[in-house]
């Protein structure tokens, strides 16, 4: 798929265009080769300049690129023997989430992935990565099978949020998410989550309670999207870049806040520039973490997960200002 460019990537696009044009010429002389070399250096420079120092909102934009590898791509690249299963056994099969069994580097696992598409038809099929209640229930059903059969759970998070629609409300979106979160605390198998793109709010945590949470370098994870935050707090979605700054939603922020355990590096400019490297990086990090988790006993796994989330939060024990009840 052709690479798309945002406004801030213009210099990279121009350098790339120049290089492509030169390469298209059918010439072999030394002058031409020197020209190509020069253009290649210019492209490298432009990429380092633009991508070497990304703002939080630029990372959000990169995380949303349609050509970025999605959950189904990671599952395809990192697992073998994949067998998808469908449906929540109650209402429907939500295609926004892919569930099934697979082998990951020699370990039988359950995989759960929020899917996004590259073009209109695919996007409609996956509902832009926004799950309905039946999607959360399908994921829970699959994870319960993992717990029953002692299989580790590998979760790939990439969603702009749980679907905000009339039917989703009618079928209990809040109940589905709440139940998933609670039930994920009961599992005695390793749960390894990876935020590969967008981690928006309840839609993400609804399948995201892990013993370990990994995060790709350009992924974002927050209580609300920058646009949503801007339209509420600034009363104007145009302030999304400021909101992205304020929300502290980058992988680096989340590592510092001890919400994620590890940042998985991406190729310069984003995973889509070199998907194979992105797959290998994530696969290696997952394998390393999973190997450690598999050393824990079932009870230890549950307790470790509980302890991790029990400890989250920042407050003061302000005895001086105690209110009189």
């Amino acid at each position: 798929m052709a690479i798309s460019y945002y406004e801030f990537e213009k210099p990279v696009q121009q350098a790339q265009d120049k290089l492509d044009k030169a390469l298209a010429k059918d010439r072999q002389d030394e002058k031409h080769l020197r020209e190509i070399q020069k253009l290649e250096t210019e492209l490298e420079q432009a990429r380092h300049e633009i991508y070497g120092n990304l703002t939080p909102f630029q990372r959000v934009l990169i995380a949303r690129k349609p050509e970025r590898p999605h959950a189904q791509d990671y599952i395809k690249a990192l697992t073998t023997e994949f067998q998808e299963i469908h449906g929540d056994r109650g209402y429907a099969d939500d295609k926004a989430v892919l569930c099934g069994f697979a082998q990951f580097r020699g370990v039988s696992c359950v995989v759960i992935g929020q899917c996004k598409g590259r073009e209109v038809k695919e996007n409609l099929k996956y509902n832009f990565g926004m799950m309905h209640p039946e999607g959360y229930r399908k994921a829970l059903r699959t994870m319960k099978l993992a717990d029953k059969f002692g299989l580790p759970v590998l979760v790939f998070i990439d969603t702009p949020g749980a679907y905000p629609g009339v039917q989703a409300e009618e079928r209990g979106q809040f109940e589905a998410i709440a139940r998933n979160i609670r039930e994920m605390f009961t599992f005695t198998v390793p749960v390894l989550c990876s935020v590969i793109g967008e981690g928006a709010s309840g839609g993400a945590i609804g399948i995201g309670v892990g013993n370990v949470v990994l995060m790709l370098e350009n992924a974002w994870y927050s209580v609300i999207s920058p646009e949503g935050c801007a339209s509420i707090l600034w009363r104007d979605a145009q302030f999304a870049p400021q909101a992205a700054e304020a929300l502290k939603l980058t992988a680096q922020d989340l590592l510092e806040l001890k919400i994620v355990e590890e940042i998985v590096p991406e190729p310069l400019g984003g995973a889509h520039y070199d998907p194979d490297t992105a797959y290998a990086n994530l696969g290696d990090a997952m394998q390393r973490q999973l190997t450690q988790l598999l050393k824990l006993s079932p009870d230890e796994l549950r307790e470790q997960r509980f302890a991790k989330y029990r400890a989250v939060g920042e407050w003061e024990e302000n005895l001086a200002e105690q209110t009189k009840g």
Binding site: I205, L257, I259, V312
Partner: peptide
């Protein structure tokens, strides 16, 4: 959830639900 505490607020959903699992048990 409180936007001004961003991810820390989101994680309170997990923390409180974790205790609901303990109450169940």
């Amino acid at each position: 959830a409180r936007m001004m505490e961003s991810i820390l607020s989101l994680m309170q959903m997990a923390k409180t639900s974790a205790l609901c699992a303990e109450l169940d048990r």
